Simulated assay, not measured.
Amino acid sequence: MTADHPPQPAPDGAASPARRGRRAVVLVAAVLVLITGAAAYAVRATAPAPVADRSFDTTAPGRLLLRSDGRIAAVPLSNPAAAPTIGSASCDRFSTANGTTLCLVARPGTPPTTSALILDRTLKETRRVGLAGVPSRARMSASGRMASWTVFVTGDSYNQGGFSTWSGLLDTRTGYLITNMEDIPLTLNGRRYHSEDVNYWGVTFASDDNRFYATVSTKGRTYLVEGDYGAWQARTLRENAECPSLSPDGTRLVFKKRLSSGEWRLHALDLATMRETPLAERASIDDQVAWLDAGTVMYAKGGDLWSARADGTGVPSLLAKRASSPSAPS
């Protein structure tokens, strides 16, 4: 069943005493990423800025929502290569569904931080959550109720100076917030698991707004986990499956799998049989895909937006140039 909030974690993502002793400081590398982005923006700013459509509505039918030149935008589903209609919101990552949008905005500084903005159908801000770190992933549930994000942070005592991740959840109906889900009780290979190096990222929601899937890493390994929001617990399903995305019918996940070469390849997983199928995309894809329809996924590659069949057949297709963070219409 769908609960209004999980019973175990404290509000606003309060962590255990051990974890409260750690507060993230973002790497200098992350600062350089933001500086590079700012420099690129300064170059683009010499060209006339696109004029935002004041009637922009994320629920308008027949459109694909995406990020174009840093702004939330829309293109016709019948012609994704068309010039985009630009909205008023600028995001580094975003996801939208059923009239609710999650927009992650990087805030340069020392250390950099992130603002997670909840926007209505006209992109008007309704809530703001301050986060540590640099934006990485954003995902809304199909109903528009549940929002999840992942940010890159560092400084955790276990992390030895490298990046770690914090993933949060927000129930937009009740307002219940968890800024870091790393304390969710985890069962790994059938046994209750405890470790200071647990990290989660890449959440995807089922249609009931209760079941979710995500990646967890610990001891140098990554696992696909299935979570229960109401019961506030998670269990591993298999190893080496990152950034999952659940199909609209809830039967399949598409994820990125790390190969021995260090590259990631997109695979589909049948949840009933646990059989995996490689997709036709042969490039290394570092993205959490979104579903365009029941049989097709979308993802960022080389600065553009591409699609591929989720059954492994066909060939990848270019959807839109200079685009990312796609969301199919509800």
Rank of each mutant, 00 (worst) to 15 (best):
G130C: 03
P84D: 10
T58K: 13
A116S: 01
T187F: 00
G130L: 05
S55F: 08
T126K: 10
P112W: 14
A52Q: 15
T100G: 03
I86G: 04
I118R: 10
S143P: 03
T85F: 02
R71P: 00
R93C: 00
F94L: 09
I184M: 07
D120L: 07
P111Y: 13
R127S: 14
R127G: 03
S115I: 03
P111Q: 13
G109E: 02
T100P: 00
M140T: 14
L117P: 10
Q160K: 15
T187K: 13
P111K: 04
A82I: 10
D57Y: 01
D53V: 05
F163I: 11
V51L: 04
A89T: 10
R173L: 08
S141N: 14
G175E: 00
G144R: 05
P76F: 02
S148W: 09
S167Y: 11
R173H: 14
R107T: 14
L77V: 07
V51A: 12
A132I: 01
A142G: 12
I86E: 15
F94H: 12
R137C: 08
D53T: 07
A142T: 14
R93L: 03
G62N: 08
D57Q: 14
T59S: 05
R173G: 07
R71A: 12
Q160L: 13
T150P: 11
N159E: 09
Y176P: 00
T96C: 04
G161N: 07
G70A: 02
D57I: 00
D183W: 01
T113Y: 02
A132W: 09
G70L: 03
A83E: 10
R137W: 13
T85Y: 08
S90T: 12
T114D: 07
N189P: 09
P135G: 13
L177S: 01
D69C: 04
G87T: 00
A142M: 11
T172V: 05
G168K: 04
P76A: 12
T85E: 12
D69W: 06
S78K: 15
A142I: 01
D171S: 10
L186E: 13
R127V: 04
L64I: 10
T165L: 06
T165W: 05
G161A: 07
A82Q: 15
P112M: 12
G109K: 02
